[in-house]
Every structure is written in C-alpha cells, then in structure tokens.
C-alpha cells in the first residue's frame, strides 16, 4: 500500500490538470455571476491557478532556478493591487446607484 502510494506520486501532468480544473471553475464563476464581487472572487481563483502553473513548471522543468516562483510572486502582488482598485470601484458604484449588479451597468451600451 505504502509502496504503491510512494510510486504513484503526482507528476507534472497531474498538477497541470489540477490547476486547469481550478481555472475552468473560475471561468464558470466569471461568466455566471451577476454580483461584481462574485466576479472578482472568480478572477482571484483564476489568477491563483495560473500562478500555481508557473510554480509547477518551475519545479518540474527547471528545478535549479526560481524564475517560476518569482513570477508567481509578481502575480500575487499584481492581484493584490487589482483587488484593491476593483473593490474601491465597487464601493464607489454602490454609493452612486445602491447596487453592484453587473447586468444593470449598461450606460455605455451602444
């Protein structure tokens, strides 16, 4: 049993499939949510799985360098900046029209 488990550890393809599935779940949330904060959460999920992809490639394809980890670090920093600005916009929007339903934000529709 233990031998079986030890010899069937997760390989590159397993990690990549995992992060792909998480990304697809993020896409589902992005497209099906109506509340802007729900969309932001889905975007965070997608950013996270993409960052994990970078780390996985770093670990399996170039274990000597840390470039993928640094890329993930930058992704995390940019995600933080993006979340701050997006949430500030949501607060301002809510103050302006008492709702953050993206279906009702159509004033720039042609």
């Amino acid at each position: 049993m233990i031998q079986y488990l030890a010899s069937h550890g997760p390989g590159l393809i397993h990690w990549l499939i995992l992060s792909n599935v998480l990304f697809a779940i993020g896409i589902y949330g992005l497209l099906s949510r109506r509340n802007a904060i729900g969309i932001l959460m889905a975007v965070e999920l997608m950013l996270n799985s993409a960052a994990m992809n970078a780390v996985v490639f770093n670990r399996f394809l170039a274990p000597k360098s840390v470039d993928g980890e640094i890329l993930a670090l930058f992704v995390i920093a940019v995600a933080a900046a993006e979340a701050v600005v997006a949430l500030a916009i949501f607060v301002a929007l809510f103050r302006d029209r008492s709702s953050i339903d993206v279906n009702r934000m159509d004033s720039m529709k042609g």
Binding site: A77, A81, E82, V84, L87, A88, I89, V91, A92
Partner: peptide
C-alpha cells in the same frame, strides 16, 4: 511603484 499607485488610486476612488 504599482502597489503605491494602486493604494493611492483605491483611496481616491472610494
């Protein structure tokens, strides 16, 4: 610099 800009932008917008 990006983080600083985002911080100031967040304060100004909200």
């Amino acid at each position: 610099v990006l983080l600083l800009a985002a911080m100031i932008g967040g304060i100004v917008i909200a």
